[in-house]
């Protein structure tokens, strides 16, 4: 059976969530693998959420915010822009492949961009295969 990755997506309420809505309204087809969790701002996304998602069995995590300069809260996305690269550097050390975590920017008018990011990420994570959940293994010593 083909492996279908589970990807947790975080979208900010003002830009990327609306972009995702627009993809639907425009009936664009996209991979169903990304399941979106709405936060008010990408700045709310704690690195803990990302590691928690992996701990719970996600194969990838996608964080989408407003483009630089477009943040509804003026600069929340800049905080995300600082946190995610450091988190990715840490996760790389932990053996988590680069493609499993993605930070990107989607405006409310970019339904097509949302679809292409979701499809691209799904394809890449599918190619990587499942993220082996180490914590469960750890429980057995």
């Amino acid at each position: 059976m083909n492996f279908e990755p589970k990807i947790v997506g975080f979208c900010c309420n003002w830009c990327s969530y609306r972009g995702a809505d627009l993809a639907g309204t425009a009936r664009m087809k996209c991979s169903p693998n990304v399941r979106i969790i709405r936060v008010m701002c990408s700045g709310r996304v704690e690195p803990t959420f990302v590691v928690k998602a992996f701990e719970l069995g996600a194969d990838g995590v996608l964080v989408l915010g407003c483009h630089a300069g477009d943040c509804h809260y003026s600069e929340g996305n800049y905080k995300t822009m600082r946190r995610m690269p450091l988190l990715k550097k840490m996760l790389a050390q932990m053996g988590i492949e680069e493609e499993r975590v993605r930070l990107d920017w989607v405006s409310a008018s970019e339904g097509d961009r949302f679809v292409s990011i979701v499809d691209d990420m799904t394809a890449k994570v599918r190619a990587l295969g499942p993220f082996k959940n180490n914590s469960k293994e750890a429980k057995h010593g």
């Binding site: 803990t48 590691v51 928690k52 992996f54 701990e55 050390q93 932990m94 053996g95 988590i96 993220f131 082996k132 180490n134 914590s135 750890a138």
Partner: peptide, 9 residues
């Protein structure tokens, strides 16, 4: 930690 250990290829 939540991940407990690194993933070894």
């Amino acid at each position: 930690s939540l991940l407990r250990r690194a993933k070894i290829k």
